[in-house]
């Protein structure tokens, strides 16, 4: 079992990215009941914009901040231009709108940037660290640390701040939230900005390890969506656990069974969980209103 630690490390790194994407799904779903399939494109934009502003001469931290800010802007635009006008549309229409948005963003980045793979230097060098008999890249620690930090920050935001509670109230019942004076439109805008920023952050953190190209978003969106569903849609804790679990399963399958079928195992697990627990690991049970 020599490789075990090694696979766990790589699983946690990938899992942390899935968890960040899943958290992004969760925030938007909570605020608007929309599953945003273009969530993966936010990760791509975060990586791509950082690469191009960095190569244009900006220092790396500043480039990252620019990327996160611009992506947050894209998130807000997505809400204003595509989601809000379709309020109340059936699930299928919303799925098509957000998938359309993802294709649109991909098509635009292919024109604005290019079709090559890119990377920028890791934050703390590329010298692997020795931990518990396995090696880990310093950048992996940045990714895992970043995911945990975002999770804690979100938890504080939702439980300790008035704005965070307003988001939760809107998620629970939009009309009731409006009645007690919550600006639900502002909450929507905020959720999309936050979700896009988290996605972009994931892109910034992981690009030095996995590289970024205009088409990396689809795969990430599928995995993040699966992770969020695995944990139970709308539950931040579920998103974190689902993401890490998915990453670990993939890495262990690739290590011990077959690297070709590593992604298959993730979906097999999701199907199995949904068969037994139709609401996901941490989801609430709901009933249909007649």
């Amino acid at each position: 079992m020599d490789g075990l630690m090694q696979f766990i490390f790589s699983g946690l790194t990938v899992g942390a990215v899935y968890a960040l994407v899943a958290l992004g799904f969760t925030i938007i779903y909570n605020a608007s009941d929309v599953v945003n399939f273009s969530q993966g494109e936010f990760v791509m934009l975060g990586g791509m914009i950082t690469v191009f502003t960095f190569e244009a001469g900006l220092p790396l931290p500043l480039a990252a901040v620019v990327a996160i800010a611009v992506t947050a802007g894209v998130g807000v635009a997505l809400n204003k231009l595509a989601i809000e006008p379709a309020r109340g549309a059936p699930v299928v229409s919303l799925i098509i709108i957000t998938i359309g948005a993802s294709i649109l963003i991909r098509g635009a980045s292919q024109l604005i940037f290019d079709k090559q793979l890119h990377r920028f230097p890791a934050f703390s060098g590329d010298e692997p660290l020795q931990v518990l008999g396995a090696t880990i890249l310093p950048q992996s620690l940045w990714v895992i640390g970043g995911a945990l930090l975002v999770f804690v920050a979100l938890w504080l935001f939702f439980t300790k701040t008035l704005t965070g509670k307003a988001v939760l109230a809107t998620a629970n019942n939009r009309l009731a939230a409006q009645l007690v004076g919550i600006n639900t439109n502002y909450v929507m805008t905020l959720s999309f900005a936050l979700s896009a920023a988290i996605g972009a952050l994931a892109g910034v953190l992981v690009t030095p390890i996995t590289l970024v190209g205009y088409d990396v978003g689809v795969g990430l969106a599928l995995k993040g969506f699966a992770a969020a569903m695995l944990g139970g849609m709308g539950n931040p804790k579920g998103a974190l656990v689902g993401g890490l679990l998915l990453g670990l399963c993939e890495a262990l399958t690739a290590g011990f069974l077959s690297s070709q079928y590593k992604e298959a195992v993730a979906f097999v697990i999701i199907l199995a969980v949904l068969f037994v627990m139709p609401q996901g690991l941490f989801g609430r049970k709901s009933t249909e209103r007649v």
């Binding site: 595509a82 229409s93 098509i96 709108i97 359309g100 948005a101 649109l104 991909r106 098509g107």
Partner: peptide, 20 residues
């Protein structure tokens, strides 16, 4: 060809919004 994805995405969004 370069604009194919751009146009496809826009068509999907616009039809769903204006002709739900």
């Amino acid at each position: 060809a370069e604009y194919e994805q751009l146009v496809l995405g826009a068509v999907m969004i616009l039809v769903m919004i204006f002709l739900p």
